[in-house]
Structure formats: C-alpha cells, structure tokens
Design a binder for these strands. Structure first.
Lengths: 350, 350
DNA sequence: CTGTTAGCGCGTTCAT
DNA sequence: ATGAACGCGCTAACAG
C-alpha cells in the first residue's frame, strides 16, 4: 500500500503533470473536463494516464488558486444569527438542497459579526439574516465593492443588493385576530430586544389588533424574554401561572411558541383546549410537533430564498446578467392547526 | 458622497498603490501590519496615505490570493452532522470563542458529505463530528495529503490526524447505575441508526448494566426513534403511556432526554418525582432547562476540543511543530440534577 | 485533432 | 521603500 506519496504535502497540478509525463495544461483540461468550446480535445489514453497519476498522488484542485483565476469560489455563505432557531435550519436545508446539484457549497457563519468576515472572505453570494442599524453602512459598502448580497430585513433599503421582506405586519395581525375569535385574555410572548427590529413589528401587530378589538392591553400580559428558548419557557410559565391567566398566547416566533406549549403542558394545561398558542414563522418543527402548532408565515419562503441566492451566485460577474436586485416580498398565510383551533361561539373561552 | 469608486468592481492592492502613489509592496506591508522581523520599516506619513487610499476605494484583501501565497486560509471548517443537536451548538460556541481572537473564522458545514467538500475546499484545520465506515478510507487519504484533521469518533484509528474520544461506555454505565438506585423499570430511548456507532456503545451500556443488576431486559422498554427530536418525543410518549410504564428513562443523547421530559410533562407526569430522566452528553441546554437535566458527559470537552483544533490550525506547515497527532480521551462525570435526583430507600420507586 | 508554451491574476516577500 | 519573483491553477494562442 505504499503507492501514495504520503509526504503530507499537498500535491499540485505540476506534480501530477510530471508523474503522467504531460504538461500542466493537459492535466488541467483532463481534470476540469473542458476544452475550448466543446470538442473532446484530449485523447483517451493520455486522459487515463493523467487520472491515474492524480489518483496516485491524491491530487485535489486548490480552490484558492482556482478562485483567483476564475473569480468564482463555488461557495455561498449563510450568515445566521440564531443558529438554534428552527428558522435557520430551514434556510440551511433549502439552500443545501438547491446548491449541491450546482456544485456549490453552502458555508454557515454562526457569528453575528459578518461585517469583519465578509470583508476578507469571498463567496459567490452571501445571505444575511439580520442587519443591525449600525451595520447598514457596511452593508452598502460591501455591495458597492463587488460582494453579492441577499439580505433578509424588513427595514433596510435595497441599494445594489437584494432585500427579502416578509411583511410580517398584516400576517401577525391575522394571528392575533384568529385568537380574538375565541379569546379576550390574550398574552404576547416576545424577545426583549425586539424594539425597532422585525420583532417590534410583530409586537405592534398585537397591540394594534387588541386596540382595534376594543380590548385594553395589560402590561402583565406581555412576557418579555432574553431571546433563548429557556427564557421563553420561563416567561410563558410566569404568564400561565397567574391567577387570571391568559387563555391564549401569541408568540412572536415559532420557537417561543414551542416553549410556550411545553410550559403549558408542564403546568397541566391542555394546549388547544384550556389554552391556545399561536406562533409566527411557519417552521417545519411547528408543523411536525404534537400538538401541531398554529402559526402564520410566508409560503414557499425558504425555497424561493434559496433559488434567488443561487441565481445570484451563478450569475456572470458583469451587470445585465439576470434581473436587477430589488425587494422581494412574501405574502403570508394563516395556518390553523391543533395548538389554536377554530373557535366557535360554543367553544370560545370568554 | 461620490468619493467611493462605486463601479461594483472589487478593488485590488494595485489600485490602492496607484492612488496612494506607492508600490504594491508597501501597501501590503501597511495593511498586513508586518515587516520582516519587527523593525518599523514603513514611515507614518506613507502608512497614513495608504490607509486613506484603501478606505476610499473600499479595499478588502482577497483571501484567496493571500491563501495561495501563505498557505493559510485563516479558516477552520466544522463539519457537523446534526446541526439541530445542542451538542453541535456547543461545539460552534466553543470554537468561535477561541478562534475569533486569533483572527480565524470558523465555517460550518451542515452537510454530512464532507468528503467531497474537503477535497476541494481549503481550511487550516477541519473538525469532523462523525465518520461512517465507508468514509474511513477517504479520511486517511485526506490526512495523508496535507489536510489537517480533528475527528470525533470512538472507533476510527488515528492515522496522521487527531482523534477525540469520549469513552462513552463507562460513563453511560454510571448513568444507568444511577437510575438503578431508585428504579427497576428503566426504559432506554435511543436512535434506531445507532447500531455499530457511538450510540451502539451507549445502548450496550444499558443492556449490560441491567444484566449486571439481575434485571431482565424488556423489549418493549426500548424506544427506538428516527434521530429527530419529534421522533424521540413520540417514542417517549409511547413508553410513558404503557400500563406498567417505566419509572425512569435512560436517553442516549441529551436532546432525546429533553424530548422525553417534554413528553412526560405533556402526560401530566412530574419529572424527578413520578418519573426520572437521564441523558447523555452534558450539554448546556440540559443544564439550563427546567427541570434541569441529569446527564453524564465529559468535562471541559468543548473547550479542549476547540483548543486542539486551533492549535492545529495555527501550527506551521512542516512536521515537528507541535505534539504529534494522536488520540485524546475524555473522562466522564455524572451530573445529578433535578430530572433524576438521588433516590434513597425512602424515595425509591420500587 | 492533440498537446505545449506562456502568461494571467493577486497578495506576499526577498533582495536591492 | 521598491522591483520582481513567487505560488497555483486556468486558458488563449500556438506548434506538431
């Protein structure tokens, strides 16, 4: 088994060429499988020799060297702030499914600090799932200087890059109004950091829907938490332990809703009967759990997001290649499932 | 605001040199902040000029070009099979904390198919969290040809790369024996794919501990599931709905244990009183949840893993740099918390 | 039609 | 502080 040169050194195209007794150009043509327009251009015997040599040496093309020449890294970066959020997993799943057939590798950046990384690192396209106000300038500059961006944010302007919006406002209103059919005492479970971000929108929908229904908002029915699942669980437990506890919880994310369902069950409350819970986001986890989670969210969001990202990643460098970057809006739907079923006059809880 | 060349073209070091009126070498020295041994070598005024020019153009060093010359990508890859597993999140967290101060970016590969990616892609070091038997050959070859690997696996041989083991067997025995102090009817919750992998070891510990205690194993007390949280939840529900349900559940991963706790609560069982649950892995989620999860696991595992990975990533290319690659074993501890407390003769459930 | 030569691209680094 | 070579794979242009 001493056939491989186990020097620990990474073989180069030149070593392969030498071993096969051909030029580096030939090796390149054989291994990348292309020649000029489309004609074969390299004879079978030499191709075999080259392949054998490459195999013996354990040769692997050097992506960095290739990238410097072609300008493509065959990589997309997904900058995901909350990796534990099912939402992030859905993004990853959808992008992976779409990228692999194209020979593109999705790399995940778990850090919220994409500004530093994207400055240095190169990818054919980058998806960013959240933009803090102080990051907007950096975003614009990156796009100006050649970074292909797809940004998920409800407030940022599209300036030279794509912005995906999911217009949460009306959808969230639908969620709260669904609860209003059967409830008066409705609590809101939302991260404390959500003022000014998309969460802010989601909380506002709650406040406005209550006001529109003529219900006075109660401060003690707003459960703020630190953004973690454990925090959501604790906040939900507090809400449901009150003497005149709410009969329904509107959670501004699906993962918070999942925590609320768990908290209710721990307290011996039957979700969908004693208490209703609705989430926001329409994640697969919510669909699969038991009881299944009622929620609002965009339709086909993840697949369309993946398609856009990869269209950008594979587009030729110059402008005028595909459609211009812009804003992509998603319509939202209401998904009525077990955790907050339809309530008629007979089953309403007030 | 028309100061930046908003051509959409990525600026190069040559453009910066031209604008600053210096050579590319000078720009390189200024921006990478190094010159020969340690002497200044570049005057303050020119350094300022260069920095200003770089800023104006929005220059960003091209990582690919840098890598081709230095052989370093300042990147480590984490290949994580089960991204939704808290275990993976702990790995990410620990590596990120250790990598950022070193200027190294951790990139996450959510695909189990690391073989293809690592062939092409380059990183200073790679962590792989699971190796299928058919991937072992590829692993050895990668290591032979210059890829720096750190592998988490209990069975693979260390041949030119590091292997991290956490000798689950004895630790899992401790977990089951802890339950044996207060229980006779102990169920096991484990993924169905676990035969032959580390899960196999974990299941075997259960079987052996029961046998050693003179308890006959019951087939219907083994809850197999598909590896997902939802599957674990369903399997746990089945176990706990039996007429003579188990009084304790030994789950072979922490995330399965979390699902078991949720399932028990849903059924109105008080965890830590009516039924005990113990997990395997000692993840932070288990520590933070309510009730806190009893578990077994290695100590300081994630930090030490991160340290090793980054030591490898930053080591000079040649051999004889740091210690030789080998096997790193982790001792396991028992963490007794609320979900499976100590049981005395007075509180035991048989 | 098959294979080679030569030079590109970009940041780094040695010798001047 | 600079010019020029360097590392690696790609590919247009050229030679047999």
């Amino acid at each position: 088994m001493a056939k491989t040169s186990s020097t620990g050194v990474r073989p180069t195209i030149r070593m392969v060429a030498e071993l096969a007794g051909v030029s580096t150009a030939t090796v390149s043509y054989v291994l990348s499988g292309r020649r000029g327009d489309g004609g074969p251009g390299v004879s079978d015997p030499t191709a075999e020799k080259v392949k054998a040599a490459a195999e013996r040496l354990g040769y692997r093309p050097n992506q960095a060297a290739r990238a410097i020449r072609t300008g493509r890294t065959n990589t997309v970066i997904l900058s995901l702030t909350m990796l534990s959020d099912p939402w992030s997993l859905s993004v990853i799943e959808a992008v992976q499914k779409a990228a692999v057939p194209l020979g593109i590798t999705p790399m995940i950046l778990g850090d919220a600090d994409w500004v530093k990384v994207l400055g240095t690192h190169n990818a054919d396209a980058v998806f960013v799932d959240a933009v803090r106000p102080d990051q907007r300038d950096a975003l614009r500059k990156l796009a100006e200087h050649g970074t292909t961006l797809v940004v998920f944010d409800e407030e940022v302007q599209a300036e030279g890059f794509d912005v995906i919006r999911s217009i949460a406002g009306p959808g969230c209103r639908m969620a709260v109004e669904h609860l209003l059919h059967g409830h008066r005492r409705i609590a809101c479970l939302t991260p404390a950091t959500a003022s000014g971000t998309s969460g802010g929108t989601r909380y506002r929908a709650y406040a406005e829907a209550l006001e529109h229904a003529g219900i006075e908002e109660r401060e003690d029915f707003v459960g703020l938490f630190d953004g973690t699942s454990a925090g959501a669980y604790a906040a939900a437990t507090r809400l449901l332990s009150m003497p005149d506890r709410p009969t329904a919880i509107y959670a501004t994310t699906d993962y918070a809703a999942v925590s609320a369902v768990n908290a209710a069950q721990r307290l011996g409350l039957a979700v969908g009967t004693d208490v209703d819970v609705i989430g926001v986001g329409n994640t697969v986890e919510g669909e699969r759990m038991s009881p299944s989670l009622s929620t609002v969210g965009p339709v086909d969001f993840f697949d369309k997001l993946a398609q856009l990202l990869l269209r950008r990643a594979t587009a030729p460098a110059g402008p005028s290649a595909v459609e211009d970057p812009g804003v992509l809006d998603f319509p939202w739907h209401l998904f009525v499932r077990e955790s907050a079923p339809h309530r008629s006059a007979a089953t309403r809880l007030y």
